[in-house]
């Protein structure tokens, strides 16, 4: 977790929430009906539409 950008973000100020978020986020990326490529494209598209610099 030391190199994890999320775990090292301000989210770490709420460790109980961070721990549970990482479980949810990890499941979202590692399981499911939607293939990884489509998820990544959706993530990038979402970031572009919302003008997210991260």
């Amino acid at each position: 977790m030391a190199d994890d950008a999320i775990a090292n973000s301000p989210l770490a100020l709420q460790p109980e929430a961070l721990q549970r978020f990482l479980v949810l986020y990890g499941l979202l990326w590692s399981h499911g009906e939607v293939d990884h490529t489509a998820k990544e494209i959706a993530r990038l598209r979402n970031a572009r539409i919302t003008d997210c610099g991260y």
């Binding site: 709420q14 109980e16 479980v23 949810l24 399981h31």
Partner: peptide, 17 residues
């Protein structure tokens, strides 16, 4: 996903964040 979501969403109340 639903189990993990509920665990995450409820923490704001259960841990009084």
């Amino acid at each position: 996903l639903f189990d993990a979501y509920r665990d995450f969403e409820s923490v704001f109340w259960t841990h009084e964040l």
